[in-house]
Design a protein around this nucleic acid. Sequence first.
DNA 1: ATAAAAAGATGATTTTTGTCAGGTTTGACG
DNA 2: CGTCAAACCTGACAAAAATCATCTTTTTAT
Lengths: 238, 238
Amino acid sequence: MAKVEFNIACSLCEHLQDSLFSGLSPEDLSRINNHKTCVSYKKGQNIFYEGTRPTGLYCMNAGKVKVFKNNVQGKEFIIYIAKPGDFLGYRALLSEEFYQATATVLEDAKICFIPKESFFEVLQKNPTFMKRVVKAVCHEMGVMEEKLAELAHKSVRERLAANLLMLKETYGMEGEGSSLIDLALSREDLASIVGTATETVIRLLSDFKSDGLIAFEGKKIRVLDVKKLAKQADLIVA
Amino acid sequence: MAKVEFNIACSLCEHLQDSLFSGLSPEDLSRINNHKTCVSYKKGQNIFYEGTRPTGLYCMNAGKVKVFKNNVQGKEFIIYIAKPGDFLGYRALLSEEFYQATATVLEDAKICFIPKESFFEVLQKNPTFMKRVVKAVCHEMGVMEEKLAELAHKSVRERLAANLLMLKETYGMEGEGSSLIDLALSREDLASIVGTATETVIRLLSDFKSDGLIAFEGKKIRVLDVKKLAKQADLIVA
DNA sequence: ATAAAAAGATGATTTTTGTCAGGTTTGACG
DNA sequence: CGTCAAACCTGACAAAAATCATCTTTTTAT
């Protein structure tokens, strides 16, 4: 389970275009590149812990990572699932606070660590980049507001349906395979995303399966009927 | 119900120190000041509407404003209650999106409007200010993550208790009167904050009152026993 | 290969909360 | 001052979802 280092130049990273670093000048990018440390993580390893102080920014190159909070009874709530190209841990870094959540690897991952000094240097020297970061953060906030309202007023069935659609959009594969949610999520993790009990998720999933809305493929879920799922999510006023 | 204009120089505004504009250079502040429009609003008036495009930033001088989303059935969820010194509508402005929520005056308000051009000008020319804004936005995001986890796993009773404590902290008066929540909230609005039905809030409030945790003073609520309320909120593992 | 552990599934039961239907009180306004 | 509407309150009931207890299947580790 030892961490293994790897190295890929930022300029050659296949996720550069999708990431916030796209558009950075060659000099800025090399500044980031020269100070980064890239590490391979195995499923189950932790990237950072709630209550600790951030020392830099993580940038996903491969794999999937869940970011979650534990409540008093030890139940998880998953705030976000990071995929290649995503930044990780930027919220606490930019607000100069301790991490409020823990990040754990869901699928074997390669993650680059950028020391906060290098990141802040580029941020400070580059107003355009700063603006892009602000824009992204504020967009993310809008997503969270949406989630809040959903959590407050929708039933578990509606939330599960809505989340399956969201997961399909965000983690679906390219082209033909886009209906498959490319995430090896346990029922428990899915429950932690939706904000409900594991048993409830299991029951609802088997409902959705019986009704032909989804299918199981190994550990993954395929969305078969987007329209009917959207109806279940109460996104269509039928 | 006509809007009435008023004018206060930003440099003389009593909320300048509490606001994100504190620390701005005299030149920058006057740039803001010279382009702002200040308007008095009556209770019930709307500041901006979900689905419309932001054209600037609102800065609260007096009063209280609720920012909320309406769900399909018309039920409100209150995301935020703005008080003097707070910015309003910055999220959509900075993410360059439409408003995702509506802002309505809860208590007669005086609000200054800063055109986006002026705001962005200062933001761009002033990296320190930009950094403060980023920090504030990211802090706010942390608050929302907290709320999400709370909404996902806490009971209505716990959430109501937690929200009463939060409201006391945020909208409590100075010194002696700090136990009074200085907000004329209807039961319905409180329900929209907690994410529950109005009847449930009414029942729980009267429970809390019988147990001596809170008292009613006119339209306002006084917190009598912070410790016991915190226990109800499950913030103390007793 | 096999034991142990984890994940998944199902049924019974209880608790929580929303909904509905009716009340009363309060406050605004002509 | 009276009227009307909104806010507040209460009880009964139904629905949703959590919890608990098993049991089966799958995965993991030795």
